[in-house]
Amino acid sequence: MHISRGTTLALATLTAGLLTTVIAAPVHAAPTQTATPLPLTTVGDVVSAGDRVFVSGGPNSTDVVVASATGAVVGTLSGLPGPSDLLLSADRQTLYVALPTANAIAAFDTGSLVESARYDTGAGECPSSLALTGRYLWFGYGCDQWGGNIGRIDLGRQPARVTTAMATTQDFYGAPLLAAASQNRSVLLAGQMSLSPASVYAYAIGAGGTLTLLRTNDWTVIGSNLRDIALDPTGTTLYTAAGAPYEVQAFPFADITTPSATFPTGAYPTAVEPSRDGTRIAAAADTSYLFVYRPDGTELTRFVLGGGELSQGALAWSPNGLRLYAVSYDWTGRNRATLHVLPVPAG
């Protein structure tokens, strides 16, 4: 069929118009930062299972609040004696809740929100910190001064077997902070809280779940009044947030003598959390600012939190790394916890 020049120009004009229409299609706005008040007057911890976020109320509470990925409150795990530290299984289908006032650790199905198990850690143990390496669920415990130690639950046994006093060469002032590496089941990190200077202890996990102390930090290098610790996914780098210095510090797990990187936060660092892939580090202090860094200390972005100061250790990444969850607490008289959902740009 013959097409005239005029028809050709008309088709070209129409095609250009269609292309222009496609190119000029509206672009969806980027997600915005949100803040949701929670029915909690104290804060324990926060974790993200992807579609659900869990926030515990701490030793003086009875609730774990359940929120959607965007921060909307959708439910509550209620009637719990002092829910404190929270931990998710590797497949994110089980939520472990430390219950120090009940000397126990509870396990919940993250889908049905039904309690699936409760592990008795022994009278007078007060389990307050959790970590997971394969079949072993570790807990830092201690109710009294210099009564702290590390316990282990062997989830591979039926019934599960609880063992305490795993740290045979170290006494802890109180329940130690624990951290594990998602891609390395052979290492465990423990932090000594409430002392100045602070200390961290690097352990090797041996056959049968034994603990061997590898090393501790040089004197005063961690700083004072340790408040949070973390390990990167491979277990090669550890992170500390202490009351001083006014920055989160990174150290090689193999040599805790000199920081390999620092992450300024302002006065009194209170939380540090590497992303699931280890490419970004969230760090915050007792201020309204929250920072995201690369592992080399380069700042990627920062957020300003309204509604009070970030609670100790209350940071969590979404599994895909697109959101950061932070829980702040308003000490000015409102006595209200707030869940912040922060969209993090790819870095």
Rank of each mutant, 00 (worst) to 15 (best):
82 G>I: 06
148 G>T: 14
242 A>T: 09
32 T>L: 08
227 R>W: 09
247 E>M: 12
67 A>G: 00
120 D>R: 11
276 R>V: 11
89 S>H: 01
11 L>A: 15
116 S>G: 14
24 A>G: 10
38 L>T: 06
218 D>T: 15
328 S>G: 11
57 G>C: 11
152 R>S: 09
215 R>Y: 10
160 A>H: 02
292 V>A: 12
301 T>D: 11
268 Y>L: 15
342 L>I: 02
42 T>W: 07
80 L>K: 05
23 I>Q: 13
329 Y>L: 14
25 A>Y: 12
188 L>R: 07
139 F>M: 11
299 E>H: 03
69 A>W: 05
50 G>Y: 04
271 A>F: 07
344 V>E: 04
205 I>Q: 01
244 A>W: 10
214 L>F: 01
203 Y>N: 09
308 G>A: 09
271 A>V: 03
11 L>P: 06
291 F>A: 08
275 S>V: 05
195 L>T: 15
341 V>G: 02
140 G>P: 04
153 I>K: 07
310 L>R: 07
229 I>S: 09
294 R>P: 00
71 G>A: 04
10 A>L: 13
28 H>D: 07
336 R>I: 12
145 Q>T: 11
33 Q>W: 00
190 A>T: 15
74 V>C: 01
291 F>R: 09
240 T>A: 12
171 D>C: 00
174 G>E: 12
23 I>G: 10
29 A>M: 02
238 L>W: 10
209 G>L: 03
117 A>R: 05
206 G>C: 12
245 P>A: 08
83 P>L: 12
109 D>Q: 03
83 P>D: 13
304 V>Y: 04
164 T>Q: 10
23 I>P: 01
68 S>V: 01
280 R>D: 02
237 T>C: 03
220 T>L: 06
161 R>W: 07
279 T>M: 13
74 V>P: 02
266 G>F: 12
178 L>K: 08
107 A>V: 07
65 V>D: 02
125 E>A: 04
42 T>I: 00
76 T>C: 02
130 L>W: 05
280 R>P: 00
156 G>E: 08
235 G>M: 08
48 S>Y: 03
240 T>H: 06
151 G>K: 06
198 A>S: 15
8 T>G: 13
265 T>W: 06
296 D>V: 06
184 N>Y: 04
76 T>P: 04
220 T>Q: 11
137 L>M: 05
245 P>C: 08
191 G>C: 11
230 A>E: 06
13 T>W: 11
115 E>R: 15
300 L>F: 00
24 A>V: 06
199 S>M: 01
321 G>I: 02
43 V>P: 01
272 V>C: 13
149 N>Q: 10
280 R>I: 00
218 D>L: 08
274 P>N: 04
86 L>V: 13
37 P>C: 06
250 A>I: 11
154 D>S: 02
221 V>H: 09
328 S>D: 04
124 G>Y: 06
103 N>G: 07
74 V>Q: 15
113 L>T: 10
229 I>G: 07
178 L>T: 10
144 D>Q: 11
31 P>D: 11
2 H>I: 07
178 L>M: 10
234 T>Y: 06
277 D>C: 09
323 R>C: 05
338 T>E: 05
188 L>V: 14
90 A>R: 12
164 T>W: 00
172 F>S: 10
294 R>V: 02
128 S>Y: 10
270 T>A: 05
4 S>A: 14
79 G>K: 13
336 R>E: 15
330 D>N: 14
59 P>W: 03
315 L>V: 07
63 D>H: 01
323 R>P: 00
